[in-house]
């Protein structure tokens, strides 16, 4: 398939950097709004991306978010170097969390992050190696037929 119509942008997310936490998602939201993506899709992408970004800030040393746009889909991949997730099935359960008190004070760490991502993305894939890091892939379809 011809992918000359593809737009790719990479963002760096730093662990523990709470003052900038969320700034990547704010930027992605602005990019999508600018190119005229329907607001309901922009919202779903922004929510999922924000939760993923907060996860990197809270649990990892450093992460990279790659935004790939083409006329059919919005793809967001987040790869981090960090503690990883021991039991993904458990982490996907609403309310399950390994967050510290400090994270909870930030308004996060209630065990809703991954379930929120799954709820908002049309496709959600997560893999993790404990002690190494976590990889998330989210797809959002621009075609109404396939989208949530």
């Amino acid at each position: 398939m011809n992918r000359q119509d593809e737009f790719i942008q990479t963002f760096t997310i730093w662990g523990r950097d709470f003052s900038r936490a969320g700034s990547v998602s704010t930027e992605i939201k602005e990019i999508l709004q600018e190119i005229g993506v329907p607001s309901s899709i922009v919202r779903r992408v922004a929510i999922a991306s924000y939760e993923a970004e907060m996860n990197v800030v809270m649990y990892a040393h450093k992460g990279e978010l790659i935004l790939t746009l083409n006329p059919e889909t919005i793809k967001i991949e987040v790869e981090d170097k960090g503690q990883g997730i021991e039991d993904i099935e458990l982490a996907m359960q609403e309310g399950y969390s390994t967050a510290t008190e400090e994270m909870r004070e930030m308004g996060f760490g209630a065990g809703m992050g991954l379930p929120n991502i799954k709820k908002n993305a049309d496709v959600f894939i997560i893999t993790s190696t404990p002690g190494v890091g976590t990889y998330l892939k989210m797809l959002f379809y621009l075609d109404n037929e396939k989208a949530k």
Binding site: S25, I47, G107, F108
Partner: peptide, 16 residues
């Protein structure tokens, strides 16, 4: 909300 940090406004912005 009772949460007054930057995340409160970021969240408000994200959800419009």
């Amino acid at each position: 909300t009772g949460l007054t940090n930057l995340q409160s406004v970021r969240t408000a912005d994200i959800i419009e």
